[in-house]
Amino acid sequence: MSPHFSIYLYAVFALGAVGLYLALPQRGRWPVRTGLILSAAALAGLLAFFGRSFLFTEGTTFYFVVLAGIALVGAVRMITHPKPVYSAILFVMVVLATAGLLLLLRAEFLAMALVIIYAGAILVTYLFVIMLAQQSGAPVYDTTAREPFAAVAAGFLLAATIVGMLGEARAGTGAESLPVASEAADAWEGLPADESAATSHTLAVGATLLTRYVVVFELAGVLLLVAIVGAIALVRRRVEETEWEGPAAGGPVEPPAPGSIGRRVEPF
């Protein structure tokens, strides 16, 4: 990527940043709407950049642009929406778009795993917690953003830096600009030599996972176990297990009111 396009990208990013700044939750509706429009414009510019045909081969570009667009639209709206439930749902959209992108990259197993785990498990958990901790009305902490300028500036700089690295060719540091993908990328390492190109991605991933990375695989399992135990331990409520002993045994005359046993709550 030549420096000219870097500058174009920076400009697009800047426009998007301004739009994002305006779109973050704040009082009044017109700044948000203006911000969203600006962001949309920036996105369009970005996608147009992606769609320029002479840089890319035909065919998959269209899907890329669409999926990237959906992902980014979802992401922007997710972080700017005042209601957490909407953010969660929009995040599902982002996940699905990302899965699509992964499919484009011929990582089917990963894409499906993403959908199942994220959209199926993690997001559901999030939704449960949102229901648990919901406050009625629009609490102030949802309708105002904190330090939007600093946040957007940080994000912008981050994005610009990463993208900047793409466009630079520095001698001797070994970080050259990314070359165009070649046909060699179609060949995957780790497959048995006699397998043909018709081997599925899942098989390939599985083979790599269980041969080269088997230790890490086991560790991941342990990690999941620890996380389960930890999560339960964190949230456990101590319940007083006292039974009503009755006056003959020296307890109070009345049985305790329903629900009073175990009423006292102490966080762990």
Partner: peptide, 18 residues
């Protein structure tokens, strides 16, 4: 670029929502 943007948007959301 897409990944960077997603990451950066995540950063912005992290830093600005209460």
């Amino acid at each position: 670029v897409v990944g960077a943007l997603l990451f950066s948007l995540g950063v912005v959301g992290f830093l600005s929502r209460r």
